[in-house]
Nucleic acid binder design. Structure first.
Lengths: 220, 220
DNA sequence: TCTTAGGTGTTCAATATTGAACACCTCCTT
DNA sequence: AAGGAGGTGTTCAATATTGAACACCTAAGA
């Protein structure tokens, strides 16, 4: 391992490490809306997202669906098996062309033990993920569906492409938004138009989310 | 209670290790409803709950409060600082007499590096916690407040004392329940009485939760 | 080209939920 | 014993939300 830079903290690149080291893994590619794993599958491997976006969906017995996470390159998913979950508790779906690394549970545990920096990175990832899910939970507990939708749009916009000044959201249907926010499609449509009338979002080709949408969340 | 079988795997006792090894820590004791740390405090230490119960509360700017977790002995909390969170994002309150270990962030990181079994235990804890919060989120997304209350009662009952055949819940006010479930106290009162009339719970001194309460969750 | 599947805007009645009261308890403390 | 601070049961009107339609639009395939 190269000498640690004094200042550079998050120097270690888990993706590069996984890709280039002797870690036993497999590269898998998926196309839009293909299923990576299905809720109820036996679970014995962890995934690392190299490129593209993935959504994590939970289905209820009543047939409802909820999107609990949208993942970006650098994220792990399916880590539940390390904690002893025998089955997948959610379904992972590619939102576009996607490339992932699949690492067997036992191999993952081995690597976590042997490579301290990788272990650090993994723990950091879990902690961050935890923070994020907890934020989502608090959002549900505190806010109305209008505010939750506003927050979801802002988050997607920033994650989607943080380089553009005017945030353009990747193609997300109202149905998916409804499943993320925890409401019905009709409601999403209603609020989207309200936001549009107020100038918070625009529809020029793709969807544009303006920062002023924050007012929806902040105000009263 | 029969003697613990040495069934190989979860043999390592993180609490014992923390308490007896050379890990730099501090033992702190609190009484009922004392604050362990406050949302907004600077955060540079992790806590390990030795005995008692702790609730984690998030306050919104609008003055609403949400209980995002009830912790039991063996749980860590305040781990956000390891992920780089500079401030506490929630308040930790003792639900009764409580004894905790406080470990500085830097010391915690050192121990995670040096003691493999401890590290495993910590990662396992984070993963489990993650699963739990995600379940709570899904619960919010799918279920009505009636079902959420039923689930909360069942969870508390089982956690509270898993040794008794008839589950007796520790003293939890309707206000706290409302904050856990994400609804109003009036609503909790309403459903509690509904459950009682249906024989799902009883009020003999303490609150008794019957397994039949599961029907509320399962039935359509 | 025709057809179809998915996405969207919109409506409406039926429910669920809130927020804020009020009266009544039961512990505590003074 | 009086007072107070929680906790509880209950009410009510005002809102928010659902669920299920229906019509319209677009893109993509046969």
């Amino acid at each position: 391992m190269p000498k640690r830079k004094a200042s550079a903290k998050q120097q270690f690149d888990a993706g590069r490490y996984l890709a280039t080291s002797g870690v036993k893994k497999r590269i898998l590619n998926f196309r839009a809306s293909q299923t990576i794993f299905l809720q109820g599958d036996v679970s014995h491997s962890v995934f690392y997202l190299q490129s593209g976006a993935v959504k994590i969906v939970v289905s209820s017995s009543a047939g409802k669906e909820a999107v609990v996470a949208i993942l970006r390159p650098g994220d792990f998913f399916g880590e539940g098996c390390i904690a002893g979950q025998p089955l997948r508790v959610a379904t992972a779906v590619a939102l576009g062309p996607v490339s992932v690394l699949r690492i067997e549970k036992s191999e993952m545990i081995r690597v976590i033990h042997e490579e301290r920096e990788f272990s650090d990175r993994f723990v950091a990832h879990m902690l961050k993920r935890n923070v994020r899910v907890e934020e989502d939970l608090v959002d549900q507990l505190f806010n109305s569906s209008e505010k939750r939708l506003a927050r979801a749009l802002l988050l997607i916009a920033r994650y989607g492409n943080n380089e553009k000044p005017q945030h353009i959201v990747a193609r997300v249907s109202q149905r998916t938004l409804a499943e993320m926010v925890g409401t019905t499609r009709g409601r999403v449509s209603f609020f989207m138009n309200k936001f549009r009338k107020l100038g918070f979002i625009k529809y020029n080709g793709g969807l544009q989310v303006h920062d002023s949408l924050l007012r929806v969340i902040l105000h009263d």
